[in-house]
Amino acid sequence: MTWYSSQLQMIREQHYLKARTVGHLVKAKQFIDDRYCDPIDLRVIARAACLSRFHFTRLFKHCYGRTPHQYLTEKRIGLAKKLLADGATVAETCCRIGFDSPNSFSAKFRQYTGASPSEYRKKQYSIGPSAENAPILPRIKS
């Protein structure tokens, strides 16, 4: 056994959550992956994981290194970037990714990308289509 393998074993035994708990959290993450365009919130996600909101948030952060809300926002902003690059308007994008208001969408988009949605859209058009901007869209509920 290499030094690295022994470290993996030690970390697995001493620092990771039990497999059953990880299973609940993986299920919740997959729930976000499948439904992030829907108006889901922490209460709904925690319920999918069969855990209380507080307990779920703490365990999710321990497991994935960020809160469920941060993860949900990352997923939504990632899709917003694809939609904007593909020509969707800011209003359409905001609506399709489950944000309540254009203002909160714009503020969050700027926080994650450093640009406003309209600035980002304009820049994508100026540099032309690329593989990164290819429209690979998940199922979006109307």
């Binding site: 690295y4 993996l8 970390i11 959550l17 497999a19 993986v26 994935y64």
Partner: peptide, 15 residues
């Protein structure tokens, strides 16, 4: 491979 597929919490790894 020096590490076969192994579950590490929410990640599965191999080396």
């Amino acid at each position: 491979f020096s590490v076969q597929p192994t579950a590490m919490g929410p990640v599965r790894i191999a080396v």
